[in-house]
Design a binder for these strands. Structure first.
Length: 201
DNA sequence: AGCACGATTAACT
DNA sequence: GTTAATCGTGCTC
């Protein structure tokens, strides 16, 4: 299975978020591959997106969002959760942007995932942004990783693209007090009727 | 220096 | 449906 190259991520953030559906997220851990089929993403883009971590400018935390595309951005939130993004924007675009990985369908490394998600049914292993990082042992140490570099502990592979009729969109999740119109922008992408898409209120 | 809150989850009633 | 857990970040004083 071939790896997604830098050019894949050097496109409009919304296009990349959409195109990541059906692709495989690969975590190489102690020589073993934990992989999942991506079924849910969200786009965060531009200085004006009031929901994006990049909205107040560059800081030590959000630095990857301002850097090269195809690099991971992993951050800590709610005092206990790590969330995984990958930087994506057109070449030469002068703004921060990234795609949040919200849910995957487990494919390989099931034993490793099960061990990290002990006691829970498979459906709840990776159906949420913090669940998948827990399942795949992803934390802040994996922020700023070039996912297109050979031998990287994190990468993306071609997988099988999802046809338009199987793609659904909607507002992004968990934005709380974010003002309109950003609160309602349909920048969440997910595979229709897939049991691993995250559930929420 | 202090403080409110978050791109969430799991355990309750 | 409601709420506690838990702490780094970034804004305000």
């Amino acid at each position: 299975m071939s790896r997604l190259e830098r050019a894949f991520f050097a496109r409009d953030t919304l296009v990349v978020a959409r195109d990541l559906l059906g692709r495989h997220l690969v975590r190489v851990l102690e020589g073993e591959r934990i992989t999942g089929r991506i079924v849910e993403t969200e786009a965060y883009t531009g200085f004006d997106d009031q929901a994006s971590h990049g909205r107040h400018g560059e800081t030590a935390r959000n630095r990857p969002m301002f850097g090269q595309v195809g690099v991971s951005y992993v951050y800590f939130t709610y005092g206990m959760h790590w969330l995984l993004n990958v930087v994506a924007r057109p070449e030469g675009a002068g703004y921060p942007a990234a795609v949040l990985l919200r849910a995957v369908e487990p494919l390989t490394g099931l034993d490793q995932i099960a061990a990290r998600r002990d006691g829970r049914p498979p459906r709840e292993w990776t159906n949420g942004p913090a669940k998948l990082t827990r399942a795949m042992d992803i934390d802040g140490g994996l922020s700023g990783v070039d996912v297109t570099a050979p031998g990287s502990p994190l990468c993306f592979e071609e997988g099988e693209p999802v046809p338009d009729e199987a793609v659904q969109t909607g507002p992004r999740v968990g934005l709380g007090s974010t003002p309109e119109p950003w609160l309602s922008m349909p920048w969440r992408f997910y595979v229709a009727d897939n049991p691993y898409v995250s559930r929420h209120r």
